[in-house]
């Protein structure tokens, strides 16, 4: 294996994981932008989305069969939609039960944090009880093989599916936030919730939309993640922390920043894990985070944020 091939392979691997981090990081960053609140239960939204997609695709694919062609594409899409819906439902429930009552009563920020941790513990323990504590694989929805070779690096069907889906979702969110009326109200609430409210923006609706949007992304991301790494009740924790890191790295509250942070984190992990030792992957990733924050405390693309809702 030549070194150019090596570099190309590691880049592709890094971008693949990075794209997943980015998809989850968007959920953190959107909610933070609007509420200036870290939604620590977001990792559980990701996990529940993965199970949603998993059970949906298991219901359609008979054991041992490997579909092909259009059926595969349809099944992947179906799994993604099911995952996204499960994620959105979880995020909505979370907002409804863990955050809204606190916001109504004007609770201090710390109360949200405790509420989030409580919701997270509740969700993953319940999942462990209901879905079992073993890892569960997503059934094969397509024949995984090498599709194309870029500079000697082989790209598998699975990587391609992940990359395309993640890219499509990231573009869609970027367009939604930057170019639609709904996005405009999200941005308005992020800049100054009180003013936005006075101007006629339904702040409560914007908050729900933000949570649901984050849930859709995390749910679909969870399904993509489970296709490669299997689903388990504790699966949310590490990717959740990584995505949070990516959001901070890119500048929390900034949508494009989250994408940049996710991809960068993926690349650093991929190269770091190869050059040093796979076990040092996290050490290297977090060293980079600290270094970036020393130079740019608000993250790569971070800017001042407005008044929270």
């Amino acid at each position: 294996m030549g070194s150019a091939e090596q570099i190309s392979q590691l880049t592709i691997d890094g971008l693949m994981v990075g794209a997943l981090y980015a998809v989850i990081a968007l959920g953190y960053t959107l909610v933070y932008g609007v509420l200036q609140l870290i939604n620590f239960a977001h990792s559980e939204v990701f996990m529940l989305g993965a199970f949603g997609g998993l059970f949906a695709s298991r219901a359609l694919v008979p054991a041992g069969a490997t579909p092909s062609g259009l059926t595969s594409a349809g099944l992947v899409l179906f799994g993604l939609v099911a995952g996204a819906l499960a994620g959105a439902a979880a995020a909505y429930a979370l907002e409804r039960c863990a955050y809204r009552p606190l916001r109504r009563r004007g609770a201090p920020r710390l109360a949200y944090l405790i509420s989030a941790i409580g919701a997270s513990l509740f969700a993953f323990n319940l999942a462990g009880k209901e879905f079992g504590r073993q890892s569960i694989p997503v059934p094969d929805l397509f024949t995984n093989g090498t599709v194309v070779t870029v500079l000697g690096a082989e790209i598998s069907t699975q990587s391609l599916v992940i990359a395309c889906t993640a890219l499509a979702m990231l573009l869609a969110v970027d367009h939604l936030v930057a170019g639609t009326r709904l996005g405009q109200s999200v941005r308005a609430v992020a800049q100054d919730a009180e003013c936005a409210g006075l101007m006629g923006v339904d702040v409560q609706k914007v908050i729900v939309v933000t949570f649901v949007l984050g849930g859709l992304l995390a749910g679909a991301g969870g399904f993509l993640y489970a296709m490669t790494f299997n689903a388990s009740y504790t699966m949310g924790f590490v990717p959740g922390i990584k995505a949070f890191t990516a959001a901070v790295l890119g500048g929390i509250g900034n949508v494009r920043g989250a994408v940049l942070g996710g991809l960068l984190l993926g690349l650093v992990e991929s190269f770091g894990g190869y050059l040093f030792d796979a076990s040092y992957k996290n050490v290297i990733a977090f060293t980079v985070l600290v270094l970036v924050l020393l130079v740019r405390p608000s993250g790569l693309l971070g800017t001042r944020l407005g008044r929270p809702a």
Partner: peptide
């Protein structure tokens, strides 16, 4: 870990 990608490379 969950991600054995770079280990496989």
């Amino acid at each position: 870990t969950k991600d054995y990608t770079s280990q496989a490379t």
